[in-house]
Design a protein around this nucleic acid. Structure first.
Lengths: 111, 111
DNA sequence: GGCTCTACTCAGCTTGACTAGGTACCGGTA
DNA sequence: TACCGGTACCTAGTCAAGCTGAGTAGAGCC
């Protein structure tokens, strides 16, 4: 994957992580691993942690510290009501964009 | 439209403009007006011009100065071979992202 | 002790959209 | 003549967010 994905992820990665947390709660390392598994192979670990801290500060998620069998304690994140609302807004914005892109791709560009 | 679109446009606006230019050549003012018309109501004029200069510097477009009946001469941009290639790469990246987002939206999130 | 896997954190860099202006040409009107 | 309003382009500075490249630490294994 080239450099285009890096810029495209700005704004969408946040939505992706929130969408993951809408399914079930998770912690940073787990999310990073899952993203890598899904083909987002060059997402840096630091990026995910920074994002998590950001959405925590914005009050979109709740955090709980859970001891791990192996390694340091995990910070488990779960989506709260405000986060749910924000995620819905994200999907609306995404749909808007995706719709227009699809039209453009099919040659509907009549500027 | 909220602030989410601003971040989401990073990386995609470039593709959008290139896709427009794949349809036919156009100039900045025209592209801005068309984007506004399509619902991208808060895209700043300056953003489009900056983007056009950027893709010109990268050699993705050819430029021709055409006199206008009203106002200063237009800088008409058209996609060249390199731009076409870059656009195809953009569509591949976009598809990758859109596919994963769609899955996530339908609850396919199993981290 | 050294290695690997787990798990989180941080400083500094880069990209790209936004803000908030500015320049300049033209036609119409008071 | 003077001054708008529409057309058309450009620029300096700000901010958000992902990346780089580190660092810290605990647990288990050889």
């Amino acid at each position: 994957m080239g450099k285009q994905i890096t810029e495209m992820l700005k704004g969408t990665l946040e939505g992706i992580v929130l969408a993951i947390l809408a399914g079930r709660s998770a912690y940073g390392y787990e999310i990073t691993a899952w993203l890598r598994d899904q083909g987002f192979s060059d997402i840096a670990e630091g990026t995910v942690y920074a994002l998590l801290i950001r959405i925590e500060r914005r009050g979109l998620v709740d955090v709980e510290k859970v001891p791990s069998e192996k390694g340091p304690p995990r910070k488990v994140y779960s989506l709260n009501a405000q986060g749910q609302e924000y995620l819905e807004e994200f999907w609306r914005t995404w749909s808007f964009l995706a719709e227009r892109l699809d039209k453009l791709r099919e040659g509907g560009n009549r500027p």
